[in-house]
């Protein structure tokens, strides 16, 4: 996984980078609530200088889907 992405996720949720896996999701991470979900979107947009659409924001269901969305912007 992209190191920067893991760093952003870990900082937004306040957890160790080692604890972030592609499967990390609101289901298994207490801090991933709706407010932090929005903070994550803002932080990702800032870090990668991209703009996520509303559909994309709603399609982020775990770290893997987030990573895929970020990658799709990189092309």
């Amino acid at each position: 996984m992209d190191e920067n992405l893991v760093e952003v996720v870990s900082e937004v949720f306040g957890v160790d980078e080692d604890d972030i896996t592609p499967e990390t999701s609101p289901e298994n991470l207490d801090n991933w609530d709706s407010m932090n979900h929005l903070k994550l979107v803002t932080a990702i947009e800032e870090e990668f200088s991209i703009n996520l659409s509303m559909d994309e924001v709603e399609a982020i269901v775990d770290v893997k889907s987030l990573s895929d969305i970020v990658k799709s912007h990189a092309k």
Partner: peptide, 11 residues
């Protein structure tokens, strides 16, 4: 400071 730096310091 960006959003996550604010979060980090705040925490």
């Amino acid at each position: 400071l960006n959003t996550r730096e604010i979060e980090l310091v705040n925490r």
